[in-house]
Design a protein around this nucleic acid. Structure first.
Lengths: 205, 205
DNA sequence: GTCTATAGGCTGATAGAC
DNA sequence: GTCTATCAGCCTATAGAC
């Protein structure tokens, strides 16, 4: 069962409005539980209760509890990827520094308001059977950034992309968990590390 | 039970050699399970089996499964703190750059050989009822580093210490999980980010 | 001190009523 | 489509034999 990858995806995409509301309620309930109690605290009964639906209804749209977590992870990754692509697509004529800063802003916004959720989802990937499609989003993101870095003369662009993603995530997430609220200040500090890294990576690998 | 803080510490510190071996076997079994299957895969029966002891014996030294995880977390934090303190205590006459690099080396060594374990332990802190003493080790580490940074003219030293710890952890951990094996190369890249951050923090906060 | 056996509780998932 | 009720399995922790 744990290796049955078909069982970790949402069962069906609801086209009825009522169903869409139900799925949305389940996702939000799942997110809140992950935020406050972590992966271990998430079980189908609790999700259903918090969402205000019954377990039976939940199982009509999610074949397993893993599917709820996988869906949340996919959403958050897709949002981040879309945001980054939009920045890169509308960066005609901007300087390298400005673009990097805008990318940083997208990453910071996605991570900083719900750091506990972001951290749990990230951790969940390693522990759950996540579908290939959701996993691929992570790679797509890195490649998108690597491509951008390569165009601006950064050595070993894919490695650099991975490094920057994980470094920024670590810094922002920790700040959020410590209770910092000034997103602009955190972003500024992340910028220090990012540009320091990039300057060195521009000359030598 | 979850809020019973007394239940997350090892039950007694064994002075008999046989007992010490048993406790050590349980810790190593727990570490291996956390590494391969994460927090959810760790249960007392499995730990006991892998350690080659019975559940009954396990419960003589650990009042709960959380106590095993908490013990592992404490060990890893204590090792890191000890390593850092030793570097700082033997850094007479060294340049700032050399000391930072040696600190980085200590952090890298502790994190890079078992990145999956390190990540799971870190995640576990937020989800488990960890005793105050173990939690305090994290603060002690940050303060130790902050004190060092302050002596060398870094602005907002405590914030900077937290940032550097989380940034380095994120970068090294991700590299390890991706399967990178060249620790020196990873450390070099971490150095780029760290010094870039510190240069900017030296002049303005 | 170490074991086996088991109790008691909780969870994932389903069946069947409405 | 949504619900309640329930079963079978797994887990923590303990009791009692040796």
């Amino acid at each position: 069962m744990k290796s049955d990858l078909a069982a970790v995806n949402p069962r069906k995409t609801p086209r009825q409005r009522r169903s869409a509301v139900l799925v949305e309620a389940i996702y939000e309930a799942g997110a809140r539980i992950l935020e406050t109690e972590g992966l271990a605290g998430l079980n189908t009964n609790r999700v259903a209760t918090v969402a205000g639906v019954s377990v039976g209804s939940l199982y009509q749209y999610f074949p397993s509890k893993e599917a709820i977590v996988a869906g949340l992870l996919r959403q958050s990754r897709q949002d981040l990827l879309d945001g980054m692509r939009q920045v890169l697509a509308t960066s005609e004529g901007e300087t390298f520094e400005v673009i990097v800063d805008r990318l940083l802003g997208v990453a910071a916004r996605g991570q900083f308001d719900r750091p506990s959720l972001a951290r749990t989802l990230e951790y969940a990937e390693g522990m759950l059977a996540i579908d290939q499609e959701t996993r691929a989003l992570k790679t797509e993101l890195a490649e998108e950034i690597a491509n951008f870095l390569a165009q601006h003369g950064i050595a070993r662009p894919l490695i650099a992309a991975w490094d920057l993603i994980s470094l920024v995530r670590g810094l922002i997430d920790a700040a959020g968990l410590r209770g910092e609220t000034d997103a602009a200040d955190v972003q500024k500090r992340a910028r220090y590390a990012v540009f320091g890294y990039l300057e060195k990576m521009r000359v030598a690998g």
